[in-house]
Design a protein around this nucleic acid. Structure first.
Lengths: 198, 198
DNA sequence: ACTTAATGAGTGAGCGTTCACTCATTAAAT
DNA sequence: ATTTAATGAGTGAACGCTCACTCATTAAGT
């Protein structure tokens, strides 16, 4: 692919990501994207077979890239607490460094997650791995890793959703420590043991 | 409105809720709903001005009803811990008693939440009120209630999302105690105070 | 009791619009 | 000169929505 085409493709990707985040995948039309990117409608089809493929490429590449960044951060730290802080901190700062990608991933996940196969890299797998290893190392009590992963995700994602909808006004980065702390507290061994069963 | 019409409307509502939950709001067409309900397309427009109004009515009525149930449960209990347990338990059992409504609320919230005005009853308002009062009473340390509300929501909603996508196989009700416990732990005063700022 | 009129829920073919996608044509690159 | 990229009017299918019409039910008139 020539230089020209590569630039065009990058413009398509950037514009599509922004419009999908702003208006939603269904409301943003191919025409919107083409106009926004300063190209013609048909050009998009030189780069993507159809709209679905465009959405999927944008989602899966960014999703996998995020998983990769998380995994690298996690590996650079020792101990669950530090790993959690590093991952949460990066995720929060992502909102400010690339809000379009952040919103896009957050809002289209429901439509795309069914296509994510178990062998693909994903943030969910990274977090589950981190938690499982912390259990093996005895840092936290052993338990079903799936609900624990969901809880960690919820603690971080839901405030992000609140942020996207303007319900939280402070920068997410300011909440980073709070959220990592909440994850940590939620994972530590229970004091009462209420309702915990295997 | 006559008896006949009322029954028809209920069939429309039930069918629409189910199809919206199964296929998504955009993929489920008016025709699908009419066929599923065993009526003609035009009949739907005797009961709803347009598709948008149908979606909104289904969402807002169920959303408000859920808020109401949560509020009543919460008021019947004394102490934050008991209130949390009651609300989380009800929410988890909702998945089994009415999975269509559960999925519908979970999946269309992103599209409808912007229409929810601050004066409408909502589960978010109920939880925030419960947390604020627990702070006033000194049950938990005072802090910004918005992120705290988001954290509680995340701890409960994300496992529900995992459940809907089949990532969690156990019944949600079995996790109810675990999730309430996680909420409780995440809200208790921090041991280190890391990153908490006002 | 019987007939006639009024009501309004239900119908479904058809209209208008939107939108993803195509392809003949033009422009640029090599 | 040939290949590759870009163009944008055109196409057809899908879908939301309309509206003139049907018909069972109910009310009014005689």
């Amino acid at each position: 692919m020539a230089r020209r085409a590569e630039e065009t493709r990058e413009r398509i990707d950037r514009t599509a990501l922004r419009l999908f985040a702003e208006k939603g995948v269904d409301q943003a039309t191919i025409n919107d994207i083409a106009t926004g990117a300063g190209i013609a409608e048909g050009t998009i089809y030189r780069h993507y077979k159809n709209k679905e493929e465009l959405i999927w490429r944008l989602f899966s590449s960014n999703y996998a890239a995020l998983a990769d960044r998380l995994d690298r951060l996690q590996e650079a730290e020792a101990g669950l607490r530090a790993k959690l802080e590093a991952m949460v901190s990066m995720f929060c700062s992502l909102y400010e460094s690339d809000p379009a990608m952040f919103s896009f991933l957050l809002l289209v996940q429901h439509g795309q997650l069914p296509r994510v196969t178990p062998d693909m890299p994903s943030p969910v797998k990274v977090v589950r791995k981190v938690l499982s290893r912390a259990m093996e190392r005895g840092e936290i009590a052993p338990r079903d890793p799936e609900p624990a992963t969901a809880i960690v995700f919820g603690i971080v994602l839901q405030p992000a959703v609140f942020k996207v909808y303007g319900r939280i006004e402070r920068p997410l980065t300011e909440l980073s420590g709070l959220l990592a702390e909440a994850c940590w507290m939620a994972l530590k061994p229970t004091s009462t043991g209420a309702g915990v069963r295997s």
